[in-house]
Design a protein around this nucleic acid. Sequence first.
DNA 1: ATTGTCTCCATAGACATTCTATGGAGGCGA
DNA 2: TCGCCTCCATAGAATGTCTATGGAGACAAT
Lengths: 114, 114
Amino acid sequence: MAGRSVDLFQGTLDVLILKSVSWAPIHGYSIARWLEQTTQDVLRVEEGSLYPALHRLEARGLIVAEWGLSENNRRAKFYELTPSGRRQLRVEASTWARFADAVSRVLAATAQPA
Amino acid sequence: MAGRSVDLFQGTLDVLILKSVSWAPIHGYSIARWLEQTTQDVLRVEEGSLYPALHRLEARGLIVAEWGLSENNRRAKFYELTPSGRRQLRVEASTWARFADAVSRVLAATAQPA
DNA sequence: ATTGTCTCCATAGACATTCTATGGAGGCGA
DNA sequence: TCGCCTCCATAGAATGTCTATGGAGACAAT
């Protein structure tokens, strides 16, 4: 059980993607690799989740895509944050922090009130 | 925006409930109140989510129910952890911790690797 | 040249969970 | 008796993630 990865909790993928594309244009496959690497394989994003998510974010105008060539000389779509996407990243990161803190408070509670 | 509550991320409700019932028999309505109170209204559990979740957990044998009378003299179903539920609480709490830590690591990252 | 492996994109379909909306019944106080 | 609060419950919609699958091109090895 020690090394298993964790299924994503619904709603977290978007903010993870927004963060991944917040520095420089990056393609989908690379996003997945970076997330796995950064989290030591705790977060594993399946392609069947990733690409629909990217399309959603693009449709909402939070990221924009452009075709290019990957490091390995392959056709790849590079995504980048729009200004609106950058605002959304801030919002969702702060929402996540509030939420995670609240859950932690519950799980750390040692007794219930009267 | 400051005081808004956060929709639950799918998958977190179970562990919150298991924790809520981990001390003494408690009924559904009271679970919702306790969660709101403990998280200063950040986590708000709707009844349409709560009761189905309780039934799910009961069906899985993680909690057991017994009818009783509430503090206000009303008919209420009191839930309690089973031994199997207590084990599950440990598992899910640890899964949550791993997950939350991984997400935090991503959101705190300041640069992407080569 | 052929084969295999890896990269990269993509879609379909199943599945689980949470939400909104709604209803009802009983206790209690005004 | 009227209204509010407590407590349980279900139906239906919406959403997002997963598994499974496919395809095509780059590159290395044989």
